[in-house]
Amino acid sequence: MSDYRVSHLAALEAEAIFIFREVAATCQRPVLLFSGGKDSIVMLHLAQKAFAPAPIPFPVMHVDTGQNFDEVIDFRDRRVAQTGVQLLVASVQDAIDRGLVTEPPNGTRNRIQTPVLLEAAEKYQFDALFGGARRDEEKARAKERIFSFRDDFGQWDPKQQRPELWSLYNGRVHPGEQIRVFPLSNWTELDVWRYIGDQGIELPPVYFAAEREVVDRGGMLFAVNRFIRPKDGEAVFTEKIRYRTVGDATLTAGVRSEATTVAQIIAEVAATRITERGATRGDDKTSEAAMEDRKREGYF
């Protein structure tokens, strides 16, 4: 280290830790959105490092669509127990039962997560919500600030973003408003995997390739499970797949893979020609500006 050079992963880690500490020191009630997916797992790991040897000074929250991979929920609960952090669950099923939102006809609950998230934020009076979104994921995300202001309705206004100079983040809000904070903004998918490998971070088994029973829908491979039932006449076959993202289990497809270790995944990710959302998410394909529209409504 004598020439004071810092690798890009070390620089990204230092930036994320700085962001966690800024929020903890200046916001009243932060919360970290934790789904059990790889980006939120990396966030939780960084949050632990930011405050060590003290515990993480805020709770984590899962907006639970009720349509998750079982392995991911098991992992979530185990990881939370290890960390000793408080877990809050905002349940979409519960919100449907109460009539806050209605189940969309296509059965996917991605969009109705937003009112549930906003209701929970209001109930607990969260003023800063950490999300694991990265700018390399999607073109609207590429435009968003690290500290992203949301109004009383949780809405993002892409034409009125606060200027964000140097590392002087403005997290001030009035009651009812929020800041969404993205500590992994500048990380790419490859950076996340390299960091997972470097730090020996544990992940749910769905991220690693295994023989799974799948159906092919429009070129995407969906593993058969509680949520994905083969339709009449649909062929079920066995394929070695892994997941690049783990979103809603009704929407998230796997990719053919031989990678059973992080090192093998890194090699595959480095060589892939398709974005992680493009390869695995049904939800972003609906329209050209699907993500921007959802963000304007208060989505992460």
Binding site: R5, V6, L9, L12, L190, A267, A270
Partner: peptide, 12 residues
């Protein structure tokens, strides 16, 4: 070259 050749400790 494609990015797979990226060394571990590259400068930002």
């Amino acid at each position: 070259a494609a990015p797979e050749a990226l060394p571990e400790a590259s400068e930002l």
